[in-house]
Write a protein that binds this DNA or RNA. Structure first.
Lengths: 239, 239
DNA sequence: GAGCGACGCAATGTATGCGTTGTCAAGTCG
DNA sequence: CGACTTGACAACGCATACATTGCGTCGCTC
């Protein structure tokens, strides 16, 4: 094998497509492993050898191992001494836990956002996600709807301006995304969801922290029961 | 250097002291680095080379690097390309963030604990921390008080039975511990704190989820303002 | 024929070496 | 006199080599 100089090929390719990005191998490993997991190419519950993954990503075991370590600390997989890395399945119980945490932290973010005295301009990105979702509902586009929904929650958390909350949210969102992918087409288009979003938005704009918090909390609790019920109806341990 | 066989010495030592524990080097690195940080031997804001730490721990760079990667994902330090690993200082603003998260998650745990229908036996460990704290207050022992306080919160979170909450709590507790060490002797013994603990305990035993949640939430919010005020009075960026 | 033990293989944990790259500094030019 | 450039050194990223260790299989014995 001649991996020493092959990196240069990547640099050359990079010249045409992108100028700025020169990603380190362990960062590439992290990103690609994530993608492989979310795309289902590494199914939940499956085991994979470090060397196998390394070859698949065209690099040595070291950066793959580093990426796996990070993903392990985020709960996406598990390193087991002689069994390879196991992609952790996400059960309905896991989703209950995750949604409880998301509910608590997003409600906190909504409260803090309302206390921040944001102007209408500041909240424009948030407003856009609501408009996008409204469009998606009208055109009955589930994929766009899901993206707008995630964008709303992400933007809300961002407005909460708590870097710990943001970090935890990103981590848990990864796991929710997997479950969502399997349930998305198994339920009716949740038209009521956007009413909640709008109400939270208006509470934030009005500076009503208590309303923003309680309304968002209720919104998330409802989403939790819908998703968990659906997961249990379909059988758990999904990707 | 002859590190190849030295591991055996550890195994031999293990024969007399302990039978079960045969800790991997990267796990040792993780534990020891944590200790070095909390003991203040690696002060907040200081930089250290990977090779330097490796030599200090008597192992090669690889396990140290793996441990550092984990600690970075937990926010205790930062790996900067050619500057070494930097021990992250914790500012008053950081503490505000951390306490907000802890407040939200512990309140959730208190709520869930109250809903779990625990018997008095189940809650015995929690009761013990309250008794311990009471003793500590009577003997005016700040160190024991701090330990009992942490034990109460840890046990409460454990009773919440949400593994994500537990994991996040452990992570953030590490950072709180550092700040607490510097402020502990700069404030009066908080005798009122244990009244809150007792009230939360009784609410859980009575199955009153709402009361457990709101009481604990208030308790944490108060603790936050006390700690943050103190930090700002002393000057921030403490170990 | 079945159970137990030993050998071999394969995967991980860890060490080490090397190429790359960022940083610091000295020297030169404007 | 100051700023820019260039060069050397050193730390890190990553590949690779190696030793340990657990598991499976094969063979031997009862």
């Amino acid at each position: 094998m001649l991996p020493l100089m092959l990196k240069k090929a990547g640099a050359l390719n990079g010249m045409q497509g992108q100028i700025s990005k020169e990603l380190s191998n362990s960062q590439r490993a992290l990103k690609e492993l994530r993608n492989l997991i979310f795309s289902g190419e590494l199914p939940a519950g499956s085991d994979h050898l470090e060397s196998e993954l390394a070859e698949r990503l065209g690099m040595s075991r070291t950066p793959v191992r580093e990426a796996a370590l990070t993903l392990e600390s985020q709960g996406l997989l598990q390193l087991r001494p002689r069994k390879g890395v196991r992609i952790l399945p996400v059960s309905a119980d896991d989703m209950r836990e995750i949604y409880d945490v998301l509910t608590a932290l997003e409600s906190l973010a909504a409260e803090r956002a309302a206390q921040s005295g944001y102007s209408e301009d500041d909240l424009a990105p948030l407003a856009k996600t609501i408009a996008d979702m409204s469009d998606a509902i009208n055109s009955e586009d589930l994929k766009v709807w899901a993206e707008a929904d995630e964008a709303f929650h992400r933007e809300l958390v961002r407005l909460g301006k708590n870097t710990r909350v943001i970090a935890i949210f990103e981590m848990l969102s990864d796991q929710v995304r997997r479950a969502r992918a399997t349930t998305l087409f198994a339920r009716p288009l949740p038209t009521k969801s956007n009413e909640d979003h709008l109400a939270v938005f208006e509470a934030i704009l009005a500076g009503d922290a208590e309303a923003a918090k309680t309304r968002h909390c209720a919104h998330r609790k409802h989403a939790k029961t819908v998703l968990v019920d659906l997961l249990e109806k379909l059988g758990l341990s999904r990707v």
